[in-house]
Design a protein around this nucleic acid. Sequence first.
DNA 1: GCGACAG
DNA 2: ATCTTGTCGC
Length: 243
Amino acid sequence: MKKNTFDYQKWQNERKYFQQEGVKKEELELEPFFNIQEDIKKQILTEGDPSSEVKFIAGVDVAYNEVAQRVVAGLAILDAITLECVETAICEDRICFPYIPGLFSFREIPPILKAFEKLRIQPDLIVCDGQGMAHPKGVGMACHLGIELQIPSIGCAKSRLIGEFEAPGEERGASTPLLFEGQEVGKVVRTQTEVKPVFVSVGHMISLETACQWVLRLSPNYRLPETTRAADHLVNQTMKQLF
DNA sequence: GCGACAG
DNA sequence: ATCTTGTCGC
């Protein structure tokens, strides 16, 4: 089996790279990706409170059709005050990377960046449907995207990837630390009373506390932030219509 | 060696 | 992620 030498620039420019090479998940050389994650990790800023400047917030989500090998990445820009969707953007493309826990961002970021290019409004904050620093190497997709775009970002995942935690209180707003190797890498946050909590972690240029405040503010009526819900609806609707 | 494992 | 019916409730 020939080994693939990974070129990040090429990967970003030609998202069909792996598909063209016919690289299977099992024979994928992981070291190059770990090295990229190491570089990204050094750039992560875990402090910041952009709240006063936040006018627009981007929700990000991606839908897949494995059979057709197609992917739809979607962005929903919400007004930070009214939570109304003021702009959307999508990118429909071929799937370029397999799903591998820990390397999730390499699968989702290419089409997401394409969608960002189509945006008229530049958001002041990004909420991702996945982990930030609550990741085996501390570099979840929210970190990767935040670094790539140099925009404050939050990871808000529906389930756990790493770490241990105690269940938070049943009341909306309750939270407990998510611990990994002796460090607090995120928070388990109850966004709705007696509803399964979400996993919040820092992406880039924001503190964990501020990130949790935003997730709560963005989830007044449902378990997930309105940003994620809007983006989710957008990509599912688009994929459905596309078949 | 045996599970666990964001979407 | 996606495959999938009905059903309970506001």
